Amino acid sequence: MIALVPLIMVTGSRMGLVVGLIGFSCLIFMRFSRDAGGKGFALSGAMQAGAGALIAAGMAAGSVFLARDKALDRMAAGTENELRMPVWESMLEFIPQYMPWGSGIGSFVPIYQIHEPPKLLIPGYFNQAHNDWIDIALTSGIPGAVLALAALIMFALGAKSALAARGVAGHLRKCGIIVILVLAFASLSDYPLRTPILSALFAIAAVWAWSPETDNTHKRKPEAS
């Protein structure tokens, strides 16, 4: 986990940096959650978490010192040359034209090329909206929005149940909720679930999030006298 800190920073992804912080924060919360026996983690656990945080902070500082902090540089540079926000604004203007059924799944590229403002023309083209939540509204309309809302409700219910779960299964459920949260947040400016490996990870996380609350551990039965 600690080794991921410089890797996140050198990729230059601002959303990667943000969701990395979210993921680390959630894992710290998991580390100090209460176990099945209701006992808090011992001092050694707190020392381990503190040492890990210090090492991660040191590696982050080292990345900055060595001028490898591309993600921080991009965040500090602002959004003067950022095209995503203007693209989203233009999409919000023409989405009503395709209601209530949407423009069709997978139709973003040709639909956006029809409505692309002249001021946003570039030598290349946008292959995705870089915001899957807005893309759902455009391509699948009201049905897609209803399904997305249902998914958010299920996520909220799953998160509430996972927080109350205990034991190994409780940690597994919390881990699934964290993965789903990170991917949902990353979908605000990217399209992680459109990549095969992350869509597979999302499916696994959904199974984790709804795993049985009781451990499937068979206790040894006492022998008959």
Rank of each mutant, 00 (worst) to 15 (best):
K70V: 14
V10H: 05
L181T: 12
R220E: 15
W88E: 00
K39W: 01
M9Y: 14
E93R: 15
I204N: 00
D190S: 15
H171P: 00
I2F: 01
T79R: 14
V64E: 08
N216V: 00
A60Y: 13
Y125Q: 12
W101V: 06
W101F: 13
D190W: 02
L43S: 05
G170S: 04
Y112L: 02
V18T: 12
F65Y: 08
T79F: 13
L43A: 13
K39H: 09
A165N: 00
A57I: 04
L121I: 12
V19S: 09
M30Q: 14
K174Y: 00
G62E: 06
V168P: 00
G176W: 05
P86N: 09
G58Y: 06
S225N: 11
S187N: 12
W208A: 10
M75R: 11
G176N: 10
K174T: 02
S187R: 06
G20S: 09
L21T: 09
I122E: 11
V168D: 00
V182P: 04
V87F: 01
D190T: 14
D132Q: 15
G40I: 01
G37C: 03
K221M: 10
V168L: 02
L152R: 02
P100A: 09
S187P: 07
R14L: 06
L17Y: 15
E89Y: 01
S25G: 15
G106K: 09
I8P: 01
L193T: 14
A3D: 05
G37H: 03
I197N: 07
P86W: 03
P123W: 11
G176M: 06
K219N: 04
K219V: 05
E82W: 12
L120K: 06
I177M: 08
V5S: 08
A148T: 10
Y98G: 13
Q113C: 00
K219W: 02
L138D: 04
A200W: 03
Q97C: 06
P100C: 09
K39C: 03
A57G: 15
T217P: 00
A165F: 00
V19R: 05
L121D: 10
E80G: 10
I136L: 15
G124S: 11
D135W: 06
D73V: 11
Q97L: 13
G124V: 06
L183S: 04
G102F: 11
N81Q: 04
G62A: 12
I178N: 07
N216L: 08
V10R: 03
E116G: 01
A205R: 01
L72M: 13
G144A: 07
F155C: 07
W208R: 00
I111E: 07
V5P: 01
L138Y: 06
P117R: 13
W210S: 14
I177T: 04
L149C: 12
G12A: 12
N131V: 02
D132T: 15
W133N: 05
A3T: 07
E213R: 07
W101T: 09
G158K: 02
A184G: 14
G124D: 10
I8T: 15
